[in-house]
Each structure stands twice: as C-alpha cells, then as structure tokens.
Computed example of a mutant assay.
Amino acid sequence: MNSLPGISLPDAGRPTLLRHAPPGWQPYIQLARLDRPIGWWLLLLPCWWASLLASNSLHVAPNFWHLGLFLIGAVAMRGAGTTYNDFLDRDIDAKVERTRNRPLAANRISPRAAALFLAAQIGVGLAVLLCFNRFTIVLAPVSLLIVAVYPLMKRVTFWPQAVLGLAFAFGALVGWAAETGSLARPAVLLYAGGIAWTIGYDTIYALQDMEDDLIAGVKSTALRFGGHVRQGVGLFYALAFALIGAALYAAGAAHGAALLGWLCLGVHFAWQVWHLDPADGGVALKLFRSNRDAGLIFAASLAVQALL
C-alpha cells in the first residue's frame, strides 16, 4: 500500500515527526502513535509511580536503570496495543471522522504489514521484560490478556474505559514487582487508583467522538454519563486521589515531597473537572493531554522523596 505524505490525524500533536519521516515510515509512525506520545506517557507513569513508591518504602534511591527500561517498554507496548487495536477496528475507524484516516482504515498499509509490525514491537517489549526479575517476567504478560479483549469491549459495554484502566494501570503492579520481587498492599491500592484515573481521563477523551460513536454503534462512559459527565469524571478522579493517597500511606511515604506531589495531583484533577466542557472537543483533548503533566509532577515528587 502506498502512503500519502503528510497525513496528520486530528488529535495528533505537532506533525514534526511525520514531516521529517520518509513517506514509507509514516503509516507505521501513526500505527504506533509515535506522533501522539501522550498514550505511552499514560502507560509509563503508573510504572514509574510504583517503582518510585517501592524505592520510598524500601528507603533506597530510585532505580534509574529500571525507570529507563520502563520507558522503552512503554513506547513499544503502547505501539503494539494501538497497532492491534487499529487492526481489529479498521472497519469502525473508517466510519468515524477522527479516525477515518488511520493507516489501516484508509488502506494506506496492508493488514499483513501491520501484523509484522505488531510482532516486532512485541519483540522489543519482550527483550525489555527479560531484564527484570523472575516474578515480574511471569506477572507482566498477564496484562496482554486484558489488551487482547479491550478493543472488543466498546461493542458490548458502556464501560470500555474500565477495561482500558485494567491494562494501562497494570504498570503499577509491574513497577512494584520489579523493585521488590513480589506484590503488596501499596501496589494493589496504586493499581486501583490508576484504574480510576484512567476511567476519568479516557471519559474526557471519549467526549470527542460521541456523535460518531452513536452512528457507529460504539459505546463509552462518555455516552453512559450523558449530561452528568462532569460528575462522573469528578467521581472517578476523587476515587483515584483517595486510592493513590492510601497507597502512599500503606508504603510509609505519606510525608514530605511525596505528600506534596499527591496534593498537587488532586488540585490538577479538580482543575480538569472545573474546566470540562462536554460540548467542546478541543478542550477535552487539552484536558486529556494534561494528565501527562499531572502524572509527571507526582512521579517527580516520589523521586525527590526517595533521594532525600
């Protein structure tokens, strides 16, 4: 399939990467969402949170080698997940304005080429995984089962965001396991908080597609909440804030810089809810992307506390 140079999707960031990439690479960049890094950031942050929280609990310095491995793994596995998602959703994507120019939906790349690209990305993720301890190597692949069913959930339930949360927040378990070789209450609480956080921010993201989703028969929490979407997002953000705070307390890290970072995270959640306008897709996209900054602030606070 021939690619069309310079096609930028509506919710992509600055098209710098696409503009400078060879035309033949562009469909693969878009399949892996490398032109939209917010996805791998949101997959990475629970890994960083958990790794740094474990460092605080163990009273050791952050494991920067592991933090770097999580970065590589998040980019690779986010790309694998979106490639798989686009492979299954290519017919639905063709009916939705925001997604109709995706490489598979627009026939700019063949399903076979996409499958080979998927295998290559999984290979990178596997290479990263083998750098961790045995418990983590056994634990992490469980998330692939969740990833496998996620693209199908929007066809059968108004809660696909909850399934996405199970997958995206799984790094909270993996990050803790990588540092401790086991799971404990702080990791489980952080995982639950990450699920609630994901439901909140992905509901905001889904506001962009409500009209098209109705036409295509796709379900989402944005449609389920309807006119109460602000209250729904606020409820899940409040739950995320409480559970993440409980994880801090359980790990013995509810003080100093970590506590301040948690409070800043809560303020950011409140700011998002306050500015949410269900009728404005542009605002929804801006608020959704801002979760990277909120997550980085909390991660930085955990790193500072561990170093201190």
Rank of each mutant, 00 (worst) to 15 (best):
P10H: 15
D11G: 07
A12P: 00
A12C: 07
G13V: 00
G13E: 09
G13T: 01
G13M: 05
G13K: 07
R14M: 11
P15L: 10
P15G: 09
P15N: 13
P15E: 14
T16E: 03
T16V: 10
L18C: 06
L18G: 13
L18Q: 05
L18E: 00
L18Y: 01
H20T: 14
H20E: 01
A21S: 15
P23H: 06
P23V: 15
G24R: 07
G24D: 08
G24S: 14
W25F: 12
Q26H: 01
Q26S: 03
P27H: 10
P27S: 04
P27W: 08
Y28C: 00
I29A: 09
I29E: 07
I29H: 08
Q30D: 04
Q30V: 00
Q30N: 05
L31N: 07
L31D: 01
L31A: 03
A32C: 01
A32R: 00
R33S: 01
R33M: 08
R33C: 04
L34Y: 02
L34F: 11
L34K: 05
D35N: 14
R36E: 04
R36W: 07
P37R: 04
P37V: 04
P37D: 01
I38A: 11
G39H: 13
G39W: 11
G39L: 07
G39M: 14
W40A: 10
W40T: 08
W40E: 04
W40F: 14
L42C: 11
L43A: 06
L44G: 03
L44I: 07
L45K: 02
L45Y: 10
L45Q: 02
P46E: 02
C47E: 05
C47Q: 02
W48D: 13
W48E: 08
W48N: 04
W49Y: 12
W49P: 10
W49R: 09
W49A: 03
A50R: 00
A50V: 05
A50Y: 00
S51V: 06
S51C: 15
L52P: 05
L52T: 14
L52C: 15
L53Q: 06
L53T: 11
L53M: 13
L53H: 08
A54C: 09
S55E: 04
N56A: 08
N56V: 11
N56P: 11
N56E: 11
N56Y: 07
S57M: 08
S57Q: 13
S57V: 01
S57Y: 03
L58D: 07
H59R: 15
V60Y: 01
V60K: 15
V60D: 00
V60A: 14
A61Q: 08
A61E: 02
P62H: 05
N63F: 02
F64G: 00
F64N: 03
W65P: 02
W65T: 12
H66R: 03
H66Y: 12
L67D: 06
L67Q: 09
L67K: 03
G68R: 15
L69K: 09
F70T: 01
F70R: 01
L71E: 00
L71A: 15
I72E: 05
I72A: 13
G73N: 08
G73M: 10
G73S: 13
G73D: 08
A74W: 02
V75F: 01
V75H: 05
A76P: 14
A76C: 04
A76W: 06
M77C: 04
M77D: 13
M77P: 14
G79Q: 00
